[in-house]
Design a protein around this nucleic acid. Sequence first.
DNA 1: TGCCAGGCGGGGT
DNA 2: ACCCCGCATGGC
Length: 315
Amino acid sequence: MELKELYELKLQAKEPFDLNLTLSCYSFNWWFNGRAGVIPLLEEPMTVAVVSGSNLEVEVKVFGVEQVDVEKQLRWILGLDEDLSDFYSKVERDPLLREVPKTLRGMRMRALSPWNALLVAICQQNASFMQGWRMLSRIYKLLGAEVNVEGLKTIIPPGPGKLLSDDAKVKLREAGAGYRAEVIVEAAKRAREGLLKEASSLSPSRAEDVLREVKGIGSYTARLTLVLSMRMYELLPLDRWLKRLAEEVYGVEDAEKELKARWGRWCGLATYFTTVVLDAEVISEALRRALSGEVKPKPYAGRPTPLTMWMHEWR
DNA sequence: TGCCAGGCGGGGT
DNA sequence: ACCCCGCATGGC
C-alpha cells in the first residue's frame, strides 16, 4: 500500500527537546532511519506522519488517504508539551538516573496507541529485552500492515481486529509468543469491546484494575500500558529486573516503597529511563553496571539496545 | 544439555 | 498475606 502526502506542518517543542533521541528510542528500523521518524497515527482512515527537522522546529509530513487533522495527536505522541523539569531535579543525584537530565536531556517518551502499548507490555512478560522485542518485531512483520511512504517501507502495528483473525494464533506462535498468544488474543477481544477506552477515562489506579480484568494481565503489564500510551506515570511497573536493581543499588528490602519515595509521580517514566540508561542489559550485567556507576547509555553496544535497536535488522 | 528470563494465575499454607 | 510452581519459547 502506498500512501500519498496530504499536507505539511511545523511544530515547536517546550525546551529542552531532543528530536533525535526521542525518535531513536525503542524504534525499529521501519520507524526510524537516523534522520526521519515514521509515526503511525490512525488505522482508519490510514494516516501516518513522517517527522524530521531540528530540535527547534519539528517538520511533519502527513500521509494518508483523506484529510485529517493530526497536530494535537502528534504533539501528544512526541510529548512536545511535557515539562520534565520537576523530574530532572528529582533524579539529578539519583544513582540510577542521574544521566537522564544530562546525556538524555530533552528526550521524551514517544507515546504508543493504547492497544499497541498493551501488546508491547505483554511481550515483555517473563522475557529478556532481546526476547521481548524480537517477539514483537515478528508479530509486526507477520500481522502488521506494510505501507510505503516516500519510498520508505514502514509497518503499521496490527490492531485488535487483526489479532482476532483466524490465523492470528498460528502467527503469534510463529512469532515465538508462546503462552502469551492466548493473553494477546484475550486482550484483543476486550480491546475491541472498548476496554482501553474505558481505562483511559479513569484514574490510574482504577485503570489498572480494569486492565487486570483480562486473564494474563497483571499489575506490571497494566501499569506499563498506562505509562506507554497514556503518560500515566504515577504507578510503578515493577518487574523482577527493576526490583533487584533497586534492592541492590539503594540497599533496601522494599523496592516499591523506596522507588515511590524517590520518584514520586514520575515512577513510570523513571522506569522507562532506567532501561534506557542501562541499555536494557540482563540483570547480572545491569547490576554490575549500576553498582559501578556506569549509568550512561553506550553509544554503540554491538547489540541492540533501546537507543540503538533502530540500527539493527530484526527478523 | 538443562536452566533461566523485565509475569501471571492458581493452589497451597 | 504470603510462598511456590508451571507455563511456551528462545538463548546460552
